[in-house]
Computed example of a mutant assay.
Amino acid sequence: MSTATTYGARDHARAQEGAEAETMPVVPAAAWPEPPREAGPLVWAETVAGGGYTHKVLARGTELRLTDVRGDACAHLLLFVADRPWERLNAADTVKVQWNAYLGERSLLLSDQGRVLASVIADTSGRHDALCGTSTLVRNTERYGDGTPQSASPAGRELFKLAALKNGLEPRDLPPSISFFQGVRVGEDGALAFAGSAGPGAAVTLRAEHDLTVLIANVPHPADPRPDYTSTPLEVLAWRARATGPGDALWDASPEGRRAFLNTAEFHTARGLA
């Protein structure tokens, strides 16, 4: 089919309707072929290519499941309160307040306002990182020869910039991110050792405790020692559920967590959202 004319280009574009690729969003999300049995109505269904990114605004109470399809995904994550993006994920407070450098089931992802942005309600990976952030243009250029978004080795921060712009945010709005599916461990001397992944099929499920703007970059972890740019598809599914409330075991799992949930509840109560 020739695209040399406007009519030809239009016909070619329309012929793509219904085409499927291995990595793409599914619209509507309800058309996803195999929704999780435990899930409510799907609101987000996408497979993100290695070296790709995605973003979405999710309602409070939504559950978000990330799956490392082939064992070499690395989901770098940023969270912003949807209507007030100056409140955002704070990786340092997430670690400091909970006295734990390692993310996993029952971890809380905190803002610098002492509130819970999201909670980790399920995890079959255990290979995550809240210390290193994502890759940069300079570092990827040194390692792989290029780090621009259009290259074969895009840096995580460069992809975050694109996702941020599509949500009214600027590069200065981007804090350090956390990473799922590629972990590091801290040695006795304080040195970081790359722990790699748990293998294909590992999944982590987050619950949104605020209305959130979610940014995800699926790129190699900056501590990955492999010389080649290695990044495989990431499955992203989200469905309607409910936020954590009093009486939930997660609410009272620790004194620090309970305080963070109380701060979160007070915010929603004051705004008439509780």
Results as ranks from 00 to 15, higher is better:
213 T>A: 10
186 V>P: 04
189 D>Q: 13
200 P>K: 05
194 F>I: 11
222 P>A: 08
191 A>K: 14
219 V>Y: 01
183 G>I: 05
174 L>Q: 01
218 N>E: 11
195 A>F: 02
205 T>K: 09
185 R>E: 14
218 N>L: 10
179 S>D: 09
210 H>F: 15
216 I>L: 15
187 G>L: 13
192 L>W: 10
193 A>D: 13
187 G>M: 11
192 L>P: 01
177 S>C: 15
186 V>S: 01
210 H>C: 09
201 G>A: 11
229 Y>V: 11
176 P>E: 10
193 A>H: 15
221 H>D: 11
175 P>Y: 06
181 F>S: 07
213 T>Y: 06
177 S>M: 09
180 F>P: 08
226 R>Y: 12
200 P>S: 07
220 P>W: 03
179 S>F: 00
225 P>V: 10
206 L>Y: 15
220 P>C: 05
185 R>G: 12
189 D>I: 05
207 R>T: 08
215 L>V: 03
196 G>M: 08
216 I>M: 12
192 L>S: 04
201 G>W: 01
191 A>F: 07
174 L>S: 03
220 P>D: 01
184 V>F: 02
213 T>M: 08
194 F>A: 01
201 G>S: 10
180 F>Y: 13
222 P>K: 05
190 G>F: 12
185 R>V: 11
229 Y>A: 11
216 I>K: 00
197 S>E: 07
225 P>G: 05
195 A>N: 08
175 P>S: 09
184 V>L: 09
218 N>A: 08
197 S>L: 10
181 F>R: 11
222 P>R: 06
176 P>S: 09
191 A>Y: 07
175 P>K: 06
211 D>C: 08
225 P>W: 01
208 A>R: 00
221 H>C: 12
184 V>T: 14
204 V>L: 15
192 L>E: 07
180 F>H: 06
183 G>S: 14
227 P>N: 06
206 L>H: 12
186 V>G: 03
203 A>G: 04
223 A>V: 00
192 L>Q: 11
186 V>A: 04
226 R>P: 00
182 Q>K: 10
212 L>M: 07
175 P>M: 08
215 L>K: 03
224 D>Q: 02
182 Q>S: 13
174 L>E: 03
176 P>Y: 00
184 V>G: 04
224 D>K: 03
226 R>A: 13
222 P>W: 08
200 P>D: 12
219 V>R: 01
188 E>V: 13
226 R>T: 07
207 R>F: 11
221 H>R: 11
208 A>L: 14
217 A>G: 08
174 L>T: 06
179 S>E: 02
187 G>V: 00
230 T>Y: 01
210 H>R: 15
223 A>N: 03
229 Y>F: 15
185 R>C: 01
194 F>S: 05
212 L>G: 00
213 T>G: 07
213 T>C: 14
211 D>H: 14
215 L>R: 02
215 L>Q: 04
188 E>C: 00
227 P>I: 10
225 P>D: 04
198 A>Q: 09
206 L>E: 04
190 G>P: 10
190 G>S: 12
178 I>E: 04
184 V>A: 06
179 S>I: 02
198 A>R: 10
226 R>C: 03
216 I>D: 05
217 A>D: 05
179 S>Q: 05
217 A>F: 06
207 R>S: 09
184 V>I: 15
209 E>Y: 09
199 G>N: 07
209 E>K: 09
